[in-house]
């Protein structure tokens, strides 16, 4: 025969009260979580020029003219990519790796290849390094878009 807490727990009224309390508490804390979420997401500025733009949006602006030039020249498929670090070293730094992937997103359908020497065309996306040091041997600047963005082409041998 059950006694004590077990018997008490078996009473429907107790369990109904617990269940009801659970639902009310759940509704309340869920509502609190909904309201709390508001404080976690930054309010967008009323005027777009206020504040720093999203990094991908900034890269869209940075490489916008280059993209249209590539399109105008009918370039597709793999072309070389030159960043602030040599070769695959681009993938070693958080800023350079973000630059590389974001540039790839912006420049679709071109496919960026860090092995520049294999390609006739290349783009340079330099924030700190001088083009004098980073343009690979055998390549020449075809067009300078400003801000460290260049279109490069392998010079005729």
């Amino acid at each position: 025969m059950e006694t004590g807490p077990a018997k008490w727990w078996r009473r429907d009224s107790v369990r109904r009260a617990c269940g009801g309390a659970g639902l009310v508490a759940l509704a309340g804390l869920s509502g609190w979580n909904v309201v709390d979420t508001v404080g976690r997401v930054p309010v967008p500025p009323l005027v777009a020029s206020v504040g720093e733009p999203d990094a991908v949006v900034a890269m869209e602006r940075r490489l916008g003219r280059l993209r249209f030039t590539l399109e105008r020249r009918g370039l597709r498929g793999p072309i070389g990519y030159v960043g602030d670090r040599p070769g695959t070293g681009v993938l070693d730094g958080p800023q350079t790796v973000a630059d590389f992937f974001q540039a790839q997103f912006v420049l679709v359908p071109v496919v960026l290849d860090l092995s520049v020497e294999r390609r006739e065309w290349a783009v340079a996306n330099l924030r700190a390094a001088s083009p004098l040091t980073r343009v690979p041997a055998g390549f020449a600047v075809v067009e300078d878009f400003g801000g460290g963005v260049f279109l490069l082409r392998k010079a005729a041998p």
């Binding site: 269940g19 659970g22 759940l26």
Partner: peptide, 20 residues
């Protein structure tokens, strides 16, 4: 879920109802 208040205890409590 990045909750400020975890819902799991209340969810478990709600299952105490007879018939649940």
């Amino acid at each position: 879920g990045e909750w400020r208040v975890l819902p799991f205890v209340a969810m478990a409590l709600a299952l105490a109802t007879p018939g649940a």
